[in-house]
Simulated assay, not measured.
Amino acid sequence: MMSNLYTKIASIVVLLFGILLIFIGTDGFTAFTAETARVNKLLEEKPQFPDVTFEDSKEREYSIEEFKENHVLITFFYSSCTTVCIDLEMNMSELYDKIPKEYIGDKIDFLSISFDPERDDPATLDVYKNMFSSDGETWRMARIRDQKQLNNLLEEFGVIVIPDDYGNFAHNSAFYLVDGNGVLQEVMDYKDVDAAAERIIEILEVGEGQS
């Protein structure tokens, strides 16, 4: 009899402990995947875009300040990718077309950043951008040649990049929106272009009303 009671108590303790672990690991049940928890953490911390030097498809070098006080919508990719990066940049192109033309280059710019700087030199980036109708100005594709700077940016923005033995990378993907001060404002699902466009337009319209 006592043995059964102890067994029940032990089972309840184990159950409660498991619930506690899930609660902690999912930010109080608000995040049920590691990716959701990562995004929630980014949106809470709102990291500042670090000091890096870009080199784009036209061999120009500059920092994030190049975009003045505009918002910048960012993706991370590598041109040798044959899977998710293609979908990511195709959706970036679709999103670009959904933003009102008067905002493009005036209130928002687009920037695709390669995390494979050795292979994604300016010539490669120039060919790659043409695949998605990037104009190289209001939507630029660039690399960060300094590996330490690149690693710092990836870490700050929670971008996971894991190389394999065949020159490929496993990585997560999203739309990242930073404001005119380089502060991360939104991390959006790259698969839901309509929702991303609606949110970006909302932010830009609010900013316009405050100017």
Rank of each mutant, 00 (worst) to 15 (best):
L15D: 07
E186D: 09
L73Y: 01
Q185Y: 07
R143I: 13
N152T: 10
F49A: 01
D135W: 08
L43D: 07
K41M: 13
F115W: 03
T7L: 07
G167Y: 09
V72M: 05
Q149R: 13
K107Y: 13
V183D: 02
I203T: 11
G167K: 06
I108W: 02
L177A: 03
A31W: 02
V84K: 05
G136I: 01
P100I: 04
Y78R: 02
I201Q: 09
N40E: 07
S114Y: 01
F32K: 05
D106I: 12
E186C: 02
D164H: 06
F169S: 00
T26E: 05
D194F: 06
V72L: 07
I144G: 00
L154Q: 12
N151T: 12
S211D: 06
K98I: 03
G18M: 05
A31C: 10
L153Y: 01
V161R: 01
Q147H: 13
V178D: 00
N151A: 13
V52Y: 06
K8Q: 10
E186A: 08
L43N: 05
K98T: 05
M141Q: 09
E94P: 07
A196H: 03
M2K: 14
H71P: 13
A142F: 04
C81Y: 01
D116C: 00
L16G: 14
E205C: 08
G209N: 15
V14T: 14
E61M: 15
K41T: 15
M131L: 07
A195V: 10
A10P: 11
V206G: 09
V161C: 03
S11C: 12
G180S: 07
V52R: 04
F17K: 04
S114G: 09
I160E: 07
N40L: 10
S11M: 12
D27Y: 05
E137I: 13
S133Y: 08
L125T: 04
E156R: 13
T36R: 15
E205W: 04
S133L: 10
E61K: 15
Q147R: 11
I200P: 04
P163T: 10
P100T: 05
I22Y: 11
L184N: 01
S93H: 12
D116F: 00
G25N: 11
L177W: 02
R60H: 11
A142Y: 00
E66K: 15
L88N: 12
I201T: 15
N172D: 13
Y62N: 03
R140M: 14
I19F: 12
D146P: 04
